[in-house]
Design a protein around this nucleic acid. Structure first.
Length: 153
DNA sequence: GCCAACGTTGGC
DNA sequence: GCCAACGTTGGC
């Protein structure tokens, strides 16, 4: 069982969007970064992850669970799609996605500015200056520490 | 709006 | 294979 973090710009896709989605499930498409893709390929059904909003109020807002392991991201082959990649093809899709399902919202969002002050989160990828990885692993220690502070452990 | 950090592209 | 230029991300 591994832990992850899924970053999204809420103007693009938000926690509210996920909550309103059929089955409260969505495919995590549009990722066009090799490192992030490789993390998705490593995900197993049942893995949990934080749902993180970047933007005006950067914060962890909820927990999701991987409910379908990596499969080709067809949006890369759609010229109309914002994340179209001309190098992708049915034979070589290049990009992959997973499906995630809403598990629970945090009682209150955990703001980045607060996370930065917790000694137990020292070294966390998300909090590193300049970190841009949109899908990233989270250690069990960090995951539990955050859940504890959120009051859900 | 600014800008630092990062990943990608393309010339050589 | 190097690296400068560029576009993007994302915190502030």
């Amino acid at each position: 069982m591994q832990y992850w973090l899924f970053k999204t710009e809420p103007g693009c896709y938000s926690w509210e969007d996920l909550a309103a989605a059929p089955g409260q499930t969505t495919s995590w498409d549009g990722v066009r970064n090799y490192q992030a893709r490789n993390f998705m390929k490593a995900m197993k059904t049942g893995d949990q992850g934080f749902f993180y909003h970047s933007g005006a109020v950067p914060a962890i807002v909820g927990i999701v669970e991987v409910c379908r392991e990596a499969y080709p991201d067809h949006t890369a082959q759609d010229p109309e799609n914002q994340h179209f990649d001309p190098k992708a093809s049915p034979e070589k899709p290049i990009w992959e996605m997973v499906d995630v399902r809403l598990v629970r919202a945090l009682p209150a969002p955990l703001l980045r500015k607060n996370l930065l002050q917790w000694p137990e989160l020292a070294g966390m990828e998300l909090l590193k200056r300049g970190s841009r990885l949109s899908v990233q692993p989270v250690s069990a220690e960090h995951f539990n520490a955050i859940c504890r502070r959120a009051g859900i452990l």
